[in-house]
Nucleic acid binder design. Structure first.
Lengths: 138, 138
DNA sequence: CGCCCACCTTGGACCGGGTCCAAGGTGGGC
DNA sequence: GCCCACCTTGGACCCGGTCCAAGGTGGGCG
């Protein structure tokens, strides 16, 4: 994702200060930030960026396939910049910490035809839930 | 789930007309209703039942383990009365239809220790997404 | 190099699902 | 049959997210 900006420009994305800042925030640590957290970090560099623009930009990055939306709880969506390697998520039921994980095997092969009800399945999401070491210690 | 009412009474649940109606709505067809849909069906039998009571009752049924909350999209939570047989969900990406499915194998065994980051994992949710036959035909 | 317009940004209103609260009602043990 | 702990109610409120009309600007073209 490091040359994200080039790729976007190459796809005809008009480059603006706001979009650059949002892309750079995501490109930093590989975290799972909420839109509000992205907004806060972006605003630290570009104070008057609006919430609406952050939402717009995140939405575009998602539809360009550069960022993944993850909805592991019913609070805010989170944005995962690790869009180029397939993975699943491990979530702490207590503090909400999220880690990317890479299960072996293909979960799709666990679903027999008789359990597919004629659906054309395109995608499988797996969420592992448990208690993280920090919360277990506390 | 057919003697749900007995079980609840046995657990010291005070029986009221509202709770009975909500439990009966869920006990009917094994569907995945939203709270508003439960409210609508309950109100058909008990016209002045309030939204708040439906939410309270659903919340209690969930914490008693009699009903499962399923959050397959970011719209309303759905309530799954099939709490006594473990299963996963198959969701139509277009119309939102949901089916219970029973994959073979244990998805937990696909996650090597090195990918568990010290978490104590208690639960795995799998959501299969695709297009249902009806939407494919249209 | 500068113009110009298609596209972008903005703040604020609005939306929908859900939660909270204080006041009034009622199941069911005694 | 009484009484109170527990339940229900409607309405206010919360929060994440979306929409909109008005104003700003990147960057292709001459």
């Amino acid at each position: 994702m490091s040359d994200l900006l080039e790729r976007l420009r190459g796809r005809g994305w008009r480059m603006t200060a706001q979009r650059r800042v949002v892309a750079e925030v995501l490109d930093g640590d590989h975290m799972h930030l909420t839109a509000d957290e992205v907004h806060a970090r972006a605003a630290a560099r570009l104070p008057e960026i609006s919430r609406a623009t952050v939402y717009n930009t995140l939405g575009e990055l998602v539809s360009l396939g550069e960022v993944l939306e993850v909805a592991t709880d019913r609070r805010a969506k989170r944005y995962d910049p690790n869009a180029h390697r397939p993975h699943q998520h491990l979530v702490c039921a207590q503090c909400g910490a999220i880690r990317d994980v890479h299960p072996t095997g293909n979960p799709l092969s666990d679903l027999p035809d008789s359990e597919r009800f004629g659906f054309t399945i395109s995608n499988v999401e797996v969420t592992y839930r448990g208690i993280c070491p920090d919360c277990a210690a506390a």
